[in-house]
Computed example of a mutant assay.
Amino acid sequence: MNTQQIHGAVLHGIGQTPRYEPFPAPVAGDDEAVLTVTAAALKPSDRAMAKGVHYAPTTFPHVVGLDGVGRLEDGARVAFFIPKPPFGAMAERTLVRRDVWLPVPDGVDDATAAAYLNPGMAAWKTVVFEGEAATGQTVLVLGATGASGRIATQLAVRHGARVIAAGRNQRVLDELVAGGADAAIRVDRPHDELAAAIAAAGPYDLIVDYLWGAPAEAVFAALMRTGGRPDGAGRQIRYILVGMTAGEVAGLPAMALRKAPVQLIGSGTRGQASLADAAAAYAELLQQAVAGEILLDIEPVPLADIEKTWERGGSDRRIVFTP
């Protein structure tokens, strides 16, 4: 019987706040590996898991945290995701499937590697792998001031697209424009005003939506106003839904689809990128982060402060727990 213990952010029931306390240490079985965790970022998906919405645990107690950075027994640094229950990333050690990880390049600190892992790879998957953003295209990022939306905007710029960043945080919008985005749109405005601003900045080849809800309804209204592309190219507008932070329901008028060639899909429906492609994209993303080419504000916090940090809002910095 395993009597060793670790400390971690332990959840005792759906809807509760995780507590920093002892937990049985993981023991690797066949095709498994124990990782010593060095950093794990706090994300909306972690809170959703604790609320029973996303990757919800079915037994308790359970350590929270869907991904992070750690070291293997040989000292190699890797980024991991979806630890094996009941273990999570927010602990001193965790349990993962063997070889299902991404190498962390030298020259990148653990907190940075953990902070960029989830939002960075989600942005890459949507903008590059699924969206195929390229020079000559116009990309609208709806929710550009969140962590993943911010990276998505910068990735689209780096791939040569004309990028319109739409969000609520004016400071981040200004930074995105300074970093190469062509225009910024505040989404916290009346429906008709927002629809007019979105229509004026188009036409679009790719729309990446982290918000849904009322902002998405304004996009559909804009597409009805503009119809197809005025250049006559007839290219399809790819609309990729990533998140629903502004609401789980959005009204979609039939004429939005009849007046404009829109393909509406959910991110992930194309399938998963290969582990090799994901590793290459992650390494490139981290190199760009270290070089200051793709920016994300990071706040390291001791894991012992999990309870007072878990529900903290009002910050545009990515919290990263360090055991």
Rank of each mutant, 00 (worst) to 15 (best):
W212S: 10
A221I: 12
L206A: 04
A201I: 11
Y210A: 11
A218C: 14
L211H: 00
V219W: 03
G202R: 06
A201N: 04
A195E: 04
I198F: 06
E193V: 10
A221P: 04
F220D: 01
V208W: 10
I198P: 07
L206Y: 05
L194P: 03
W212Q: 04
I198N: 07
A201G: 04
A195I: 00
A218H: 13
L206R: 03
A201K: 07
E193H: 04
E193Y: 03
L223G: 09
A201W: 00
A216G: 03
P203D: 08
L194T: 08
V208H: 01
G202P: 08
A218T: 00
D205S: 10
W212L: 05
A197N: 09
D205N: 15
L194Y: 05
A218D: 06
A196D: 15
A218K: 11
L206T: 06
V219M: 05
A199S: 06
L194V: 05
D192I: 05
L223P: 10
Y210Q: 06
A222N: 10
A200E: 15
W212I: 00
A214V: 14
P203E: 02
L194K: 08
A197V: 13
D192R: 09
A200P: 09
P215R: 06
A196V: 09
D188Y: 06
G213P: 09
A200S: 13
A214R: 14
Y210W: 13
D205M: 05
A214H: 14
G213Y: 13
A216Y: 04
L223Y: 11
A197R: 14
A197H: 12
V219L: 03
H191D: 15
A199Q: 13
A222T: 06
G213M: 13
Y204E: 06
D188P: 10
E193W: 01
G213I: 03
A195R: 01
W212N: 11
P190R: 04
A199C: 03
E217G: 07
D192C: 02
D192M: 05
W212D: 10
W212T: 10
E217L: 07
Y204N: 13
A214S: 13
D192T: 15
Y210C: 02
E193F: 05
A218L: 08
P215W: 11
R189D: 00
P215F: 03
D205L: 12
A196E: 15
P190L: 04
G202E: 01
G213F: 04
A196W: 09
A221T: 13
H191S: 14
E217D: 12
E217V: 02
A200T: 12
A218I: 13
P203S: 06
E193R: 07
V219N: 01
L206W: 02
D205T: 12
A218W: 12
I207S: 01
L223E: 11
P215T: 03
A199G: 12
A197T: 02
F220K: 04
H191L: 06
D205Q: 05
L223F: 09
D205R: 12
L206K: 01
R189G: 02
A216I: 08
I198D: 02
A200C: 14
P190Q: 08
A195M: 00
D192Y: 09
D205E: 12
W212K: 05
D205H: 15
A216H: 03
G202V: 08
A196F: 06
F220N: 11
A222H: 11
D209N: 11
E217F: 01
A222E: 12
I207N: 09
W212R: 10
L211N: 00
G202W: 07
L211Q: 14
F220A: 15
W212E: 00
V219A: 13
Y204F: 10
